[in-house]
Design a protein around this nucleic acid. Structure first.
Lengths: 147, 147
DNA sequence: CTTGATGCAAAGGATTTGCACAAAT
DNA sequence: ATTTGTGCAAATCCTTTGCATCAAG
């Protein structure tokens, strides 16, 4: 078992839940694809191994609550990506309104600026910001050139 | 008819669509509540006037496309708020993970900072940012005091 | 008139849930 | 053994769509 999976196992077991074959398989699948993936896509990748769609949903919900996964919504579907131990502090995404492709905005300086802003919000609005979903919407260069 | 409604009417008619009683009523309802409101909530406020739920959804989709409304998703439901002529440039929201209340982050300086960051993203990632959905997640002061 | 809009009910898609069975500690 | 997880199918919730009718320009 990979080091990653070992860490997730620890988190899951420490929460009182059992670390089952199904959960491991689902985690491995997400690790492998290494991009935003939906419950249904995961299901299609694992259904030959006798895993039900409900199990996939239950696992994804559980992992999200435990902070292992990050859920982002596009139209009416949830997509998931690994959250902790993935080297990311904050999630900033850009979605192209035409091709619907999602870009990860991973520039370190930008992310740091965003975090500063979150701190400003905390001070000005008397709240505690624990997470930020930032979705920028616009036109990617590829779709821009097609016009 | 209020000045606001007149402006929306213009936008709707210029897009080639008809400005019907139903659309007017839905717009007036959103204007009145002056907060995030779901299709179902709107429907409950207008159903006694013989408007179907489908009409509400069709109007909301149309208004969103025309840029009159802004759609934000919470859990599996869409909420809408007036976008243009509402004095807002960019939409930054804070949601409390406990009470699920949504705060509008309307501080002018903060918003301007966010816009600057969007411009940085445009330059660094070769995209055109047209809109930004920023949802901060955390704990509001009220829920924080209850612990 | 002609075209687009509406209301209703049915369909659709994503997600959740009830239940009997299986597997983990 | 006991408790939690699973697979399946049915149920649920939000949203969209087909169709006959209605209303706006």
């Amino acid at each position: 078992m990979s080091e990653m999976i070992e860490r997730y196992r620890k988190i899951i077991e420490e929460s009182g839940q059992k670390f089952t074959k199904q959960k491991q398989l689902i985690l491995e699948t997400i690790l492998e694809v290494n991009r935003h993936i939906s419950a249904n896509e995961i299901f299609n990748l694992v259904k030959n191994k006798n895993i039900g769609l409900a199990t996939v949903y239950r696992a994804l919900n559980s992992f999200t609550e435990l902070g292992i996964l990050k859920r982002i919504k596009i139209d009416n579907t949830s997509y998931y990506e690994l959250k902790i131990y993935s080297g990311k502090v904050l999630h900033v995404h850009f979605i192209c309104k035409y091709c619907k492709n999602i870009l990860d905005i991973n520039d370190k300086n930008l992310i740091l600026e965003y975090i500063k802003l979150n701190n400003l919000v905390e001070n000005n609005f008397d709240v505690e910001v624990q997470d930020a979903d930032i979705m920028l919407v616009g036109v990617c260069s590829s779709c821009s050139n097609k016009k």
